Amino acid sequence: MPHLPVNGESLGATGVERSPGGKAANQIVAAARLGSPTAFIGTVGHDPGDSDPSQVLRDEGVDVRFLRRDPRNNGFSVILLTPEGDQVIVTDNGPGSEIAVEPTLRALASLAAQILLVQGETDPAATLQVAHEFTGTVIFDPSPAAPFVGADLAFVTVLTPNAGEADTLAGRVGATAADVRIATGAQNVVVTRGGRGAEVSTGDGDYFVPAPEAVVADPSGAGDAFNGAMAGELLRGSNLRGAVELGVRAAAFSVSRYHCIPSFPRAEDLVSLSARGVAGEIERSVG
Rank of each mutant, 00 (worst) to 15 (best):
T43S: 13
D63Y: 02
A243G: 05
I28D: 07
V180Y: 01
Y207K: 09
S256L: 08
R257I: 07
I99K: 05
S10M: 09
S201G: 07
I139F: 03
D179T: 02
I182K: 12
V271T: 14
E121N: 15
L108R: 03
T176L: 00
V216W: 01
A32L: 08
R249D: 02
E165G: 06
D218E: 06
P265M: 06
A24K: 01
A186E: 01
G75I: 08
S220E: 08
S238T: 13
T43G: 09
V209H: 14
H3L: 03
R241I: 00
V189W: 01
G205F: 06
N26V: 06
R69A: 12
V189Q: 00
V173N: 09
H259F: 14
N93A: 14
D59M: 08
R72V: 00
S201Q: 06
F140N: 08
S77I: 12
E133Y: 09
S36F: 12
G49D: 15
V149F: 11
F76N: 10
F148K: 13
S220M: 04
T157W: 10
T157A: 11
H3G: 02
I99G: 02
A145I: 13
E213I: 03
G237F: 04
R68N: 09
A113Y: 10
Q114P: 00
P83L: 11
F148C: 12
S263P: 12
G247E: 07
R72I: 00
G195H: 05
Q187E: 15
A166I: 03
L108F: 00
P210W: 10
D269N: 15
A186F: 04
L81N: 10
A163D: 14
A125T: 14
G42Y: 05
G150V: 06
D224N: 15
A131L: 10
S97G: 13
A198F: 12
V158D: 05
G94T: 04
L117Y: 01
D204L: 15
T14E: 14
I99V: 15
V6G: 02
G205T: 03
R72K: 10
M230K: 02
G35Y: 08
R18Y: 11
Q27C: 12
G49S: 14
R196Q: 15
L235Y: 04
S274P: 00
Q187C: 04
A211G: 03
V156H: 08
G228I: 04
G8R: 06
S274Y: 09
L11P: 03
R58L: 14
G45V: 11
G21C: 11
G277Y: 05
R181A: 10
L246Q: 14
P142A: 13
R33Y: 11
V244R: 10
A107K: 09
A229N: 03
P161I: 05
D70T: 02
Q119F: 06
Q119G: 13
E121Y: 10
G195T: 12
P71D: 06
